[in-house]
Amino acid sequence: MTMENFERVTIVLAEDDEGHARLTEKNLERAGIRNKIHKCITGSAVIDYICGEGEFAGKPHISDTLILLDLNMPIMDGYQVLEKLKSNEKTKQIPIIVLTTTDDKREIKRCYELGCNIYITKPVDYIGFSNAVRELGLFLSVVKIPNGV
């Protein structure tokens, strides 16, 4: 896997808080991630985009996709999105990184049970958050994306 391959990957940023989305975007950018970022502010928008429904009818985005998922979202929350995508044979290969504000152990456990690949807590400490997102960016740059090889 090379950087060129990874650059084809679209990052789906599922986040209802525009501030958080913007901060995540900026930090990824600062970490050198130049990938296309698709923002969703509801869980169902994520499903529409991935599975090719609603607005994206007939245009699924299953390959070359990575999801940064916030748990607390309207219409469909992160858990539902996680459950739906990980229980579907076609979409279960898509890497999902849960990025959320709580570090509640039970929530973390639940996310891993539902099949999330990585769980990252959003720290209030800005430097910490920046570092986390930046590390995520580095991580994303080396992660193996299915169908994107």
């Binding site: 808080d17 501030g19 958080h20 901060l23 900026k26 748990l71 607390n72 959320t100 504000t101 709580t102 509640d104 959003k122 720290p123 209030v124 400490d125 800005y126 430097i127 958050f129 920046s130």
Partner: peptide, 18 residues
């Protein structure tokens, strides 16, 4: 407390950093 009140704090802190 853990989610909703923390979210604005993340922004406050984050954008202060920005």
């Amino acid at each position: 407390v853990s989610h909703d009140l923390r979210s604005p704090l993340v922004n406050l802190k984050g954008f202060t950093g920005e």
